[in-house]
Structure formats: structure tokens, C-alpha cells
Amino acid sequence: MYQYTLKRMLLMIPTLLGAGILVFILMRLIPGDICVLRMAGGSGYVDPKAIANCHAELGLDRSPVMQFLDFIWGFARFDFGNSMWTGRPIVEEISLRFELSLQIAIMATLTAILLAIPLGTISAVKQNTWIDYLVRGFSIAGIAMPSFWLGILIILGLLITTKSVFGTPWMPPIKYVPIWVDPLYNLSMTIFPALATGYRYSAVATRMTRSALLEVLREDYVRTARAKGLVQQVIIRRHALKNALLPVVTIIGIEFAFLMGGLVVTEQVFNLNGLGKLFVASVSNHDYAMTQALVMLVVAIFIFTNFVVDIVYAWLDPRIRYK
């Protein structure tokens, strides 16, 4: 297991390097210039000397090879440098948002797990009954509905309902306060995006749980268990579900990693100052340094999540051994 862990960790190096090369090239292929955007974004007059000065200040007047070597060398030392847009340390800018993104990702994942596993199990056990149809309808709706759209509906629903019930419209706060500062305020802001995202996420996991469980329930060992007279509940909980969960865990792992940087529109809908919003801003501002750092962070999160998923596999299925 140790060997396996070490091997996986070493494999991270070429993966990160590949991602680094890719994002470095792609960012420079996008037409546009951070200095022009910054100084001429309002279409006002900007002295070309000021733009040249800005290029020199940001190191953009150096050759791309030198810029790339600088980026990789900085990354190897965990020194991401400063944002080209704000001039502030990238680590500081990311850490501010990381906390919120992590909270939303955890809350959405919990929502998804709490919805998906019971619903998927019931749906499989009650296959082709009205309960199954209801659950399938619920999960298909979740897949079909983009979470940002659901988010907009939630906000509008809250505004309209509270206005008609209490006479004053209410919506979730738009400024983040950490959970340890004011738990109630924090939850009133984060619960709704977590529900909107968790619902879509749960829909995929519900369908996966259902189909995996249906497959397992047709296995010989389940028939044997039934023949031995084991009650249905024990068969499901102790024997079938554990095996059926393998693909579900994969889905949950991938989705969790995605949530850390991919909640672009949902973050905007709820005004969450998370990593997704920062990602979009840095790409549209041509902030190469910030985009590169964010891509490397998300790649690292994906690699780490996959690693955790592999470990969970071994726990769920003792037959799996890593050498």
C-alpha cells in the first residue's frame, strides 16, 4: 500500500507538468492583453508607453520560454507569485475563496449522498412501481435542470413567498461570513446554493445507485442469501449496497473535485466569492499567473480526490488490494 501511495504521488509530477504546459500555452493563445484591458477597458485614452510599462512590470516583455520556466520554478517552490490583475499574492487571493468553495462542496456532497443513496436504493428495491417512477422522475428533473437556473428559481421563490407571507421580501445574504463567526447567517447564505447544486449532483448519483444496485441484486450471492432466509433489509444493507456503491463513490469523487472549481454560474447567481468566480475573472482578465495557479490547484484536487476514492474502494470491497 505504501509503495502504491508513493507511486501515485510521484505520478502527480508529470500530470501537473502536463497541465502546466497546456494551460500556459492555451492562455497565451487567447487574443487580448491584460494591460490593454486594464487601462483601455473604459475606452479612454491610454499612452502606449503606459502599456509598454505595464508589460515590463508584469514580466510580459520577456520571452515565453523564460516566462514558462519562471512559472514552473515558482510552482516547484510553491511560490505562485502575485496576481497580474490585482498585484496581490496569489496564495492570499485563493485561500480567501478556498474556504467558501470547500464548504459549499462539502454541503452539496452531503446533500447529494443523503438524497441519492436512500432514493436510489428505494427505487431499485421497488423497481417498476409508482415509487420507482417518482424517484426516477425526480432524478431526471435534477439532471435536466441546470443548478444555476434552479438557484435563480430558489431566489425568486423566496422573494415572492416571503413577500406574500410576511409582507417583506427576503433573499439569502450576498456577503459571506465564515461559519464560526455567525453560523446562522453563514448557513442562510450557503444552504441554498448547496441544495441547488446538491440536487443536480444527487440526481446523477441516484440513478447510478439504482442501476448498480439492480445489477448486484441479480447476483448469485444475493440469491443465495435470500435462499438462506436472510431478511431483505439485511441483504440490501450488508451485502448488496456495499458492492453497489463502488461506481457511486467514483461519481461522488469526481463531482466533489468538480465542485471545487466548477461552480462558475451558481457562484455568480448566489454571489458566492468562490474559486469558480475567481477562475472566470482571471481568464477574462488575462491574468495568466492566477489562471495557471488555479488550474494547477484544481488538477491537484482531482488527483487527490481520485486517490481518496481508490482508498475508499479498498474499504468497500476487501477483494481490492493495491500493490
Partner: peptide
């Protein structure tokens, strides 16, 4: 969101 923020008095 900015429109709704005014509507919801945020």
C-alpha cells in the same frame, strides 16, 4: 442578482 439584491433589500 444585483436586481434581486435591491428587491430583497440586501
Amino acid at each position: 442578482l444585483r436586481v434581486q439584491a435591491i428587491r430583497g433589500d440586501r
